[in-house]
Each structure stands twice: as structure tokens, then as C-alpha cells.
Design a protein around this nucleic acid. Structure first.
Lengths: 117, 117
DNA sequence: TGTCATGTGTATTAACTAGTACACACTTTG
DNA sequence: CAAAGTGTGTACTAGTTAATACACATGACA
């Protein structure tokens, strides 16, 4: 369905070429899930795992957790908490940025980082 | 627990003073849930309802849906979809704005609205 | 006084989430 | 060859979500 599974399988197999520690079984064990479960996740037989498991998987595979969570159809809980504390401001800001081009977002990020307020 | 229930009960009772159409039963019926369920929600006996139900309730009571969703511990699905399309940019932006004061957020909102990019 | 509306207690539920457990067949590898 | 490691099929499950259905006692009201 989503290509969450395909994406991590590809990534893992790529890593596996250079390092046999990236077999499905060993990765599953390191992130604390059953191999059969990871197999099903990679083949899209089940929906993507929980946020916690997805984040552990991201770290294991050297992927950006927010990106992997997005592929899993989720948004990181800590981002949600930030939004929930000031829902009106963040809702307005995010909806306003919906159509903004990437470079505009980057501009805003940079501006905020440089403390221009 | 959270004061989601208390908040909507207060709001509904306030409206009820001026308009008898805001009885628990009638509100429940208009938003399409069982009266007993709304009763439990208002008293916090059950966790807040689904996003869809919460939004209908917000409209019914003239509340901001994003604010009510925040009280319910949720973030609107449409905001999540916006974030999920560009997870890195939005994640960085939101985390950067976590500690920013309200007026700084407002400043950014205004700047973006006025198309300064 | 009857009847209609109101809020609430109790019991129950279908669907979903996030997995585990084990057996099996195939493939390296020592 | 045997032992170990590999990926996968089948079966099962505890806990959560988001509610419904019905009965009941109380209060307003015509």
C-alpha cells in the first residue's frame, strides 16, 4: 500500500550487502521485535509498526525518524505535543505554509534559527 | 483527567441558559451520538471522542476545532497530512518554534501571510 | 396528574493496534 | 554432512478505541 515496507527493505538490503549484521533477523532482534513481524512489515503484509518501533528502526538503518514516521503515516508525538500547547498559532502557521514552496519554508526556518524576532 | 469534558460541559451549560436546544440530549442527537455517551464524555468517564466527533462538537458549541482537539490530546488530521508531505522541513520548523514566544509565532504567521519570500 | 424531556448507570461490542509464538523450508558455512 | 542462520506462513492475543442499547430516576409543564 504505502511504500513504507518497500523503503525499509531496500534500505536494509543495501546495508546488508556490506555488513551481514543487517539480516532481517538480526535487525529485528536489535530493535526488539520478532523476525516474522519485521518480515511482514517489510512486505507490507501488516501496517507499519508503532511510533517507538519505527523510530528504533530508523536509528538502526540510519534514516531520519521524521521521514520514516511520515512514510508510516504518522507524525512524531513530540511535534504533536508542541502543536497541542498552542493549537491556534501552530494550526494557522502550518495551514499557511501548506502551499509555500520549499525554499520559503527554509527561509522561515533560517530566520527563526537566527532569532529574527 | 484532562479537562476536555469539564470544558465542553461548562460551555454547553452556558449556552443552555439562553437556549433550551443545548440540553445534553439535543446536542448529542444533533452531532449524532448517544446521549449516554456524551454524558460520559462530559464527566470524563470515557476518553475524548474521535476527531470527527470532536470537530462536530466544536462546531455545535462554537468552539475552535483545533483548540478542542488539543484538549482532546489530538492534532487535526489535515495538519498531520501537511507535515507528512515535507516531514524534515516541518519537523525542524516546529521544533525550532517550540520555545519561541507567542509574539514571535504571530510575527512569522504574519510574515508568511504577507508573502514575504 | 400524566407525559415528556433530562441526565446517567450498566452492559455490551466490532474493529483495530501492535504485536508474539512456533513451525517450516531453504541456504550458507565450518 | 551437520549445524547454524535465513526469511516466511499460520495461528493467536491482550489491550485500546469509539462507540451503542436500554433501563432508570428525576424534574418540568400543561
Amino acid at each position: 500500500m504505502t511504500h513504507f515496507g518497500k523503503s525499509i527493505r531496500t534500505r536494509r538490503e543495501h546495508l546488508h550487502l556490506e555488513d551481514k549484521r543487517f539480516s532481517l533477523r538480526q535487525v529485528a532482534m536489535r530493535i526488539g521485535i520478532e523476525p516474522a513481524y519485521l518480515s511482514k512489515i517489510e512486505r507490507g503484509e501488516v501496517s507499519p509498526p508503532s511510533e517507538a518501533t519505527t523510530v528504533r528502526l530508523a536509528h538502526e538503518l540510519g534514516e531520519d525518524p521524521d521521514v520514516l514516521l511520515a512514510l508510516a503515516g504518522k507524525v512524531s508525538g513530540d511535534l504533536q505535543n508542541i502543536i497541542r500547547k498552542r493549537p491556534k498559532l501552530f494550526a494557522e502557521l502550518i495551514r499557511q505554509l501548506k502551499e509555500a514552496p520549499d525554499h520559503a519554508l527554509l527561509h522561515v526556518v533560517r530566520e527563526v534559527r537566527d532569532g529574527e524576532w
